[in-house]
């Protein structure tokens, strides 16, 4: 294709956009809305991943000793655990401190009196592991040490979190698929209108021997442009919305770890623009396909 021909293609594409201005605006907006929801969902999934990861790295194993374990044995156990492979650090929480923590949590200052002057709690050890993913293995080894009553590492919570994450992902893929199809259909309808308005012209082009690609390009560019605008709007709103939302969340829910990696954010935005362009191009090609069979 010659440069002059490309000029013709672009002129035709913009002319058609202008002639069907309202339809073009409607299609761009629809693409923008669907892509925005898509982007919001992607960021949601990424954040849940991020939070899950943060929680995992904070995980620790609570090793409760038998109530009658002497302090000297507890200290020996601490040393033994520290030498185990996979263990990062071990902290001994003596029963006196444990009772204080419990009293604080319950808001009951005179807890000791309530239990008749006897501390019912055992000593326990807080074990941090090097690799959160292998926390189960380490917990199993600790369980078999002498004087260990019970080992707890929040297994149920971790597994529930992973299950939720899995479902959010499935749901995400489903919603993303539906939204993609919806925006594709919208674009197809728009381009088909434009094609329909120019069907006589296309017919004549076919008769005088224009190649199919010569006829396709202006419509392809038109769809591409609608998709790009839609994707651009979606990306812009998403970037702005996410930044201001994370700022507000940080003020009120400061303990919640949020993804603030700009690279990820920018890739998501770029992905939306690219996705819009793809939807536009594919939608155009599908829309014009029937009209080229002459």
């Amino acid at each position: 294709m010659r440069l002059r021909t490309w000029g013709y293609f672009f002129r035709q594409a913009f002319l058609s956009l202008w002639r069907n201005a309202w339809m073009s605006v409607a299609a761009s907006t629809s693409v923008a809305v669907t892509l925005f929801i898509l982007g919001a969902f992607i960021l949601l999934v990424l954040n849940i991943n991020f939070i899950a990861l943060a929680l995992q790295s904070n995980l620790e194993i609570a090793v409760f000793l038998r109530v009658d374990t002497p302090r000297s044995q507890a200290l020996a156990l601490k040393q033994q655990m520290e030498s185990l492979p996979g263990v990062k650090e071990v902290e001994l929480v003596p029963k006196e401190q444990g009772l204080k923590i419990l009293a604080q949590q319950l808001g009951e200052e005179e807890l000791l009196e309530a239990t008749g002057g006897v501390n019912p709690l055992p000593d326990y050890l807080r074990v941090r592991v090097e690799d959160p993913a292998r926390i189960g293995e380490v917990a199993a080894i600790l369980q078999n040490l002498p004087a260990v009553e019970k080992v707890n590492y929040g297994q149920a919570v971790v597994e529930r979190l992973l299950a939720v994450l899995r479902w959010v992902r499935y749901l995400g893929v489903g919603i993303i698929g539906m939204l993609a199809v919806a925006s594709l259909m919208l674009l197809m309808i728009t381009i088909r209108l434009a094609v329909y308005a120019r069907r006589r012209e296309i017919n004549i082009m076919k008769y005088v021997g224009a190649t199919d690609w010569f006829i396709r390009w202006p419509f392809l560019l038109e769809g591409l442009f609608i998709g790009l605008i839609g994707g651009g709007i979606a990306a812009g709103v998403l970037l702005w919305g996410y930044t201001s939302l994370t700022y507000k969340i940080k003020l009120s829910l400061f303990f919640l770890p949020l993804l603030e990696d700009n690279t990820v954010l920018h890739y998501t935005a770029l992905g939306l623009v690219g996705g819009g362009a793809c939807v536009g191009a594919v939608g155009s090609l599908l829309a014009i396909h029937r009209f080229l069979k002459v």
Binding site: Y8, V208, F214
Partner: peptide, 11 residues
């Protein structure tokens, strides 16, 4: 002219 334009004949 349209018939020649679509065949990319020089203006």
């Amino acid at each position: 002219a349209f018939a020649l334009q679509v065949l990319e004949v020089p203006p």
